[in-house]
Nucleic acid binder design. Structure first.
Length: 880
RNA sequence: GCCGAAGUGGCGGAAUGGCAUACGCGCGGGUUUCAAAAACCCGUGAGGUUCACCUCGUGUGGGUUCGAAUCCCACCUUCGGCACCA
C-alpha cells in the first residue's frame, strides 16, 4: 500500500487517513454553528474551483493552506465557517458537449449534457477533496449552475437593473472568435488575447448588457483604505492601476465649421495654449457625421476602416507607428479662439475620456511624433529654466515643469503651480471644468453561450425591455437543447425557451438568450454560504450579519483585477442598496504562490515530459544536459509553473497514493513561505516523509513511558529535563508567532523538527516533561498533518479528537531558560562567549566580559573607547 | 519606458540592527547487511593553517552605526505588474 520505497514499519497512512475522515464526518467537526454566540466567529474562505474533473497542484496548495488555518482556528477556540462550492457554469462543459455531439449522434446517443458533465465532475472532485483531508461544512455546499443558486444570481441582476446599475447599450466590445462570445475588459490580457483561450480578441460594436461599474470607480479606490495592511499591497496596486484615476479638466472645443461641441479630457490644461491640432479616435461617432457628403469622405473613411481593423492589441502597444488622417474640418480652441485642424489618429482611444484628444506636440511625446510625421506645427508654451526650447531643434516633447509662455493670463507662471488657477479660470470663463477620469469601464456581463445563468429579461413589441418578475425566477435553462460545433448559442435556437409572453401586457414576446458571465456568479457566492437554504432572498440578513465579512480569503493573485474587483463592486452596491452593513467582502486576503517544477524543452519537439529526456545528469530534481528521446536534440530546462501545456504536471492523487495526504500537505508548507513560489521536488517530498516517520517512532516509543499515571512537573528538574522543557515552551512561542505573523508554516515546521531532534537526543527525562513535549508536538502538527496527529493522540490515550484540545500555552519564563550564551565582541569580532542568567544587568555583563581571558588578550595595549552591553543579547567593546 | 518585489552555501530557505547559513534536501564518511534499500550516527560556506587557530564571506560599489544580510544612496541581475490612458 505504501509504495515500494517505504520500509515495512512505516506508518500506515491509508488506513489512518480513512479512519479519521470518517470520524470527522460523524462528529461534524467542520459544521459551522449559526447559533453559537459563545465563541468568536472565523470565516475562512478559499476561492471555489471550476469543476474541471480533477484537482491540480494549484488547488492543493490553496486548499491545504485554508484547511491548516481552519484547523488552527478550531484549536484556538473559534466557531469556524469553512465552506466549499463550485464555480460550475462556464465554457468547458458546453464545449465538451459540442465536441462530442457529432460522434454521439452517429452512435445514436445523446451527447453528455453540460449539467451531467458538471455534476459528475463535482462528485469526483468532492471525493478527492475528502481524501486530502480538507475540512468543509458540506451542508453549505453550493454550485452556481444549480437553479436554486442561479435563481438568486438572476434576482441580483434584477436588483441592479431596477436601480439603474444594469443596462443594455451599444458599445465597442471585445469578441473572442474561439469562445464565440464577447468578453469583459478584465478578461482581455495586456497583449490583447482572451484570458481563457489565448485567441486574439477583435472589437465590434454590439448591443450588450453592462453593469455600471465605472460609476463605482471612486468607491472602489476609497475602499482600499480599509484594505491596506490586510490585503497584499501588490493586489491593491494592480487594482489602482486598473481603475486608473487621473485628475484633469474637461474643456469644450467646438467644430469650427458646424459649431458642434467637442469636449476633451486633459490632465495638462496648462498646455491648452500649445494645442496645434485635435485627434479623434477612429471609433468616434462624429467622424462619419462630419465627413458625410464631403469630397474627403471616401479617403477619411478608408483610413478609419484601416485603423479600426488593427486589433485592440496592436493599437495598444507603443511600437505601432502613429497613423492618422485629416477630416477636412477644424476645431476652435476656447482659450484663445484659434482654429486648428481636426484629425483622426490611431493612438486615440474611444474608451478613454471623450474619445477626443487635444494635441500639444511640444509637450506630449505621442503628439510630437504624430506632428513630425504629418508636418503639423509645434508650439512651445512651457519653457525649461536651464535652457531655451527651440521648436526646430526639439527631438522629443518637453514634458517636465517650466514657466508658461504665450498662455494668455497665465504667461510667466510656473505650470505646476498655476494648474489649480487654470481650472478655476476655465470654469469662470465657461470653457470647461475640473474633472476626474478613470480607466475602469462598465462590466460587460452578457455572453452568447448556453451554460450560464440566463439574463432574466423579456422583449415585448409593445412594452419593450421587460424584466422577469422576481417571483417568476428562476428563468431555467432548458435541458433539451441541441449542441453542435460552431452552432452558436443553443438557447437562441430553442423556441420553447425563446418564445414567451410579456409579463406586463401578456402579448407574445421573446426572451433574452444571452447568459451571464460566470464572474457574476462568483461575485456573491460568499454571501450565499452564510444561508445556503434561504428561500426568500439571496441571503438571510441575520446570518450574513453573523458571518460576514470573510475574515480570511485565500486564492490566486491572477484574480486581482477580475474576481477581486467584481466581488468588491457587488459588495459595495449591495451595501449602498441597504442589503449589507459592510462595504468590503474580505478583511484579509492571502495570495498563495505558484507551484513550479522543472520543465524540458526541445527545439524540434517543443515541451517534453521528464520521461522523454534521456542522458545528462540529475542534479537535485533537474536533468542537466539531457537529450530528447524523440529526436536526439538538445534539451533545455526551465523552472516554471506547473501546467499541462509544459508537461511538468504533478498528479496530486498519485502523490497521495504514495505518501498519504498528510505528507503531501506537510510538504506543500515545508519549503517556503506560502506566498512565495513553491518548487516541487520529489527528493524533498522524501524529507517530509522521513520526518513524519521519525515523529511517529518517537511518539509510539514514548507511549509506554508516559502512559502511566500522569506526573506533575516538579520545580527541581534535572538539567536535561529542564532543557527539554525550555525547548518545548520556546517552540510553542515560536510556532504560534510564525503562524500569527503571516502564516510562515515553513519556519513553524522547522521549529517542530528542532523540538523533535531534542526529544530524540534526550536520554532520561522526567516523564511529565516528555509527555508535555510529545503532546505539544502533536497539537502543533495537528493543523498540518491532521490524521497523523489524531491517530497518535488516540494512541496516547485520549478519547476525544485532538481538535477539541486547546492550542498549547507557553510559559515565557520557562521558554527563556535559566542561562543564556552572550557573545562578546571586540570591534565587532567575537572573542568570547559568556554563559549568564538571561536577566543579568548591563553593568554586570560589562564587568564579566572585560574579565574574560580571551577578551583581555584581544584588547591588550588598546584604548577602550566604548563598551556596549545589551542584556540578553551581546557585548561589544570598541577599542583603538 | 514606468512602478513594485527579490538577490544569502551545491539546492529550498532561516535570521529584519546584535552569534550569518536554523530546519530540510543533496553530498561525504561510518554503523547495520551476503548485498542493496531503508534506518541510525558523524561531518559538510570558502581559503589558509602551527588544525581546541586565523582570514574572508549575504549581487556590486559607497555610506550611517560600537555593530549591517537587515537602514540609506548609486548601480547590476532576475521576476512580476502596467504601458500611446491624453
Amino acid at each position: 500500500m505504501n509504495g515500494e520505497k517505504m520500509a515495512g514499519n512505516d506508518y500506515n497512512f491509508a488506513m489512518i487517513e480513512k479512519k479519521w475522515q470518517e470520524r470527522w464526518k460523524e462528529q461534524q467537526l467542520f459544521k459551522a454553528d449559526d447559533n453559537d454566540t459563545s465563541r468568536e466567529k472565523f470565516y475562512c474562505l478559499t476561492m471555489y474551483p471550476y469543476p474541471s474533473g480533477v484537482l491540480h497542484m494549484g488547488h492543493v496548495i490553496n486548499y491545504t493552506l485554508g484547511d491548516v488555518i481552519v484547523r488552527y482556528k478550531l484549536l484556538r477556540g473559534y466557531n469556524v465557517l469553512s465552506p466549499m462550492g463550485w464555480d460550475s457554469f462556464g465554457l468547458p462543459a458546453e464545449n465538451a458537449a459540442r465536441k462530442q455531439a457529432k460522434a454521439a449522434l452517429e452512435r445514436g446517443e445523446e451527447p453528455i449534457h453540460p449539467d451531467r458533465f458538471t455534476e459528475d465532475n463535482i462528485a469526483h472532485m468532492t471525493s478527492q477533496m475528502e481524501r486530502a483531508g480538507w475540512g468543509y461544512d458540506w451542508s453549505r455546499e453550493l454550485a452556481t449552475s444549480r437553479p436554486n443558486y442561479y435563481r438568486w444570481t438572476q434576482w441580483l441582476f434584477l436588483l441592479f437593473y431596477q436601480n439603474g446599475l444594469a443596462e443594455k447599450k451599444v458599445a465597442p466590445v471585445n469578441w473572442c472568435d474561439s469562445c464565440e462570445t464577447v468578453l469583459a475588459n478584465e478578461q482581455v490580457l495586456g497583449d490583447g488575447t482572451c484570458e481563457r483561450c489565448g485567441t486574439v480578441v477583435v472589437q465590434h460594436d454590439l448591443n450588450q448588457w453592462f453593469f455600471k461599474m465605472s460609476s463605482y470607480a471612486q468607491k472602489l479606490l476609497d475602499g482600499h483604505a480599509e484594505l491596506h495592511g490586510h490585503w497584499p499591497e501588490k493586489v491593491i496596486k494592480m487594482q489602482e492601476e486598473w481603475i486608473g484615476r487621473s485628475e484633469g479638466a474637461k474643456v469644450d472645443f467646438t467644430v469650427t465649421e458646424t459649431g458642434e461641441s467637442l469636449p476633451i479630457f486633459t490632465t495638462r490644461p496648462d498646455t491648452l495654449w500649445g494645442v496645434t491640432f485635435m485627434s479623434l479616435a477612429p471609433e468616434h461617432p462624429l467622424i462619419e457625421k462630419l465627413v458625410k457628403g464631403t469630397e474627403q469622405e471616401e479617403k477619411v473613411l478608408a483610413a478609419v476602416r484601416k485603423m479600426r481593423a488593427q486589433s485592440t492589441s496592436s493599437r495598444l502597444t507603443a511600437e505601432v507607428e502613429k497613423e492618422g488622417v485629416w477630416t477636412g474640418f477644424h476645431v476652435t480652441n476656447p482659450v484663445n479662439g484659434e482654429q486648428v485642424p481636426l484629425w483622426v489618429a490611431n493612438f486615440a482611444l474611444m474608451t478613454y475620456g471623450t474619445g477626443a484628444v487635444m494635441s500639444v506636440p511640444a509637450h506630449d511625446q505621442r503628439d510630437f511624433e504624430f506632428a513630425r510625421k504629418y508636418n503639423l506645427p509645434v508650439r512651445v508654451v512651457i519653457q525649461r529654466d536651464d535652457a531655451t526650447l527651440v521648436v526646430e531643434e526639439m527631438t522629443e516633447a518637453y514634458e517636465d515643469p517650466g514657466a508658461m509662455t504665450g498662455s494668455g493670463p497665465f504667461s510667466g507662471r510656473l505650470n505646476t503651480e498655476a494648474m489649480g488657477d487654470i481650472i478655476k479660470w476655465l470654469k469662470a470663463e465657461k470653457h470647461g471644468e475640473g474633472t476626474i477620469n478613470y480607466k475602469l469601464r462598465d462590466w460587460l456581463l452578457s455572453r452568447q453561450r448556453y451554460w450560464g445563468a440566463p439574463i432574466p429579461i423579456i422583449y415585448c413589441e409593445k412594452c419593450g425591455e421587460v424584466p422577469v418578475p422576481m417571483e417568476q425566477l428562476p428563468v431555467e435553462l432548458p435541458m433539451d437543447v441541441e449542441f453542435k460545433e460552431g452552432g452558436g448559442n443553443p438557447l437562441a435556437s430553442c423556441e420553447k425557451f425563446v418564445n414567451t409572453s410579456c409579463p406586463q401586457c401578456g402579448s407574445a414576446a421573446t426572451r433574452e438568450t444571452d447568459t451571464m458571465d460566470t464572474f457574476v456568479d462568483s461575485s456573491w457566492y460568499f454571501l450565499r454560504y452564510c444561508s445556503p437554504e434561504f428561500m426568500e432572498a439571496p441571503f438571510d440578513p441575520k446570518l450574513v450579519h453573523k458571518w460576514m465579512p470573510v475574515d480570511l480569503y485565500i486564492g490566486g493573485i491572477e484574480h486581482a483585477t477580475m474576481h477581486l474587483i467584481y466581488c468588491r463592486f457587488f459588495t459595495q452596491v449591495l451595501h449602498d442598496l441597504g442589503y449589507l452593513e459592510f462595504t468590503e467582502p474580505a478583511k484579509k486576503l492571502f495570495c498563495q504562490g505558484m507551484v513550479c517544477k522543472t520543465a524540458y524543452y526541445c527545439e524540434n519537439c517543443k515541451w517534453l515530459p521528464e520521461a522523454k529526456v534521456t542522458g545528462g545528469s540529475k542534479s537535485e530534481d533537474t536533468i542537466i544536459g539531457g537529450i530528447c528521446a524523440k529526436c536526439g536534440g538538445k534539451v533545455r530546462s526551465e523552472m516554471t509553473k506547473i501546467s499541462k501545456s509544459k508537461l511538468n504536471i504533478v498528479d496530486p492523487d498519485a502523490m497521495m497514493d504514495r505518501y498519504g495526504a498528510d505528507c503531501v500537505r506537510l510538504y506543500m508548507l515545508s519549503d517556503a513561505p506560502p506566498d512565495q513560489q513553491q518548487v516541487w521536488s520529489d527528493a524533498r517530498m522524501q524529507g517530509s516523509w522521513r520526518f513524519l516517520n521519525r515523529l511517529w517512532d518517537v511518539v509510539t516509543g514514548a507511549v509506554e513511558i508516559i502512559q502511566g499515571e500522569q506526573q506533575e512537573i516538579p520545580d527541581n528538574l534535572d538539567t536535561e529535563s529542564k532543557a527539554l522543557r525550555q525547548k518545548t515552551h520556546a517552540s510553542i512561542l515560536k510556532i504560534t508567532d510564525a503562524i500569527e505573523g503571516g502564516f510562515r508554516f515553513n519556519t513553524a515546521i522547522s521549529s517542530v523538527m528542532e523540538l523533535l531532534n531534542k526529544v530524540r537526543s534526550a536520554k532520561a527525562v522526567h516523564t511529565g516533561v516528555m509527555r508535555e513535549a510529545v503532546e505539544s508536538m502533536l497539537i502543533l502538527m495537528a493543523p498540518i498533518a491532521p490524521h497523523f496527529a489524531e491517530e497518535l493522540w488516540e494512541t496516547l490515550g485520549h478519547t476525544t479528537s485532538i481538535f477539541q484540545a486547546a492550542w498549547p500555552r507557553a510559559d515565557k519564563s520557562v521558554a527563556m531558560g535559566d542561562e543564556i550564551e552572550i557573545p562578546v565582541q571586540v570591534n565587532g569580532k567575537i572573542k568570547a562567549r559568556l554563559i549568564v542568567a538571561p536577566n543579568l544587568s548591563k553593568e554586570e555583563l560589562e564587568k564579566l566580559a572585560l574579565e574574560e581571558e580571551a577578551v583581555q588578550a584581544a584588547i591588550q595595549g588598546c584604548e577602550i573607547k566604548k563598551v556596549i552591553a545589551v542584556p540578553g543579547r551581546i557585548v561589544n567593546i570598541a577599542v583603538k
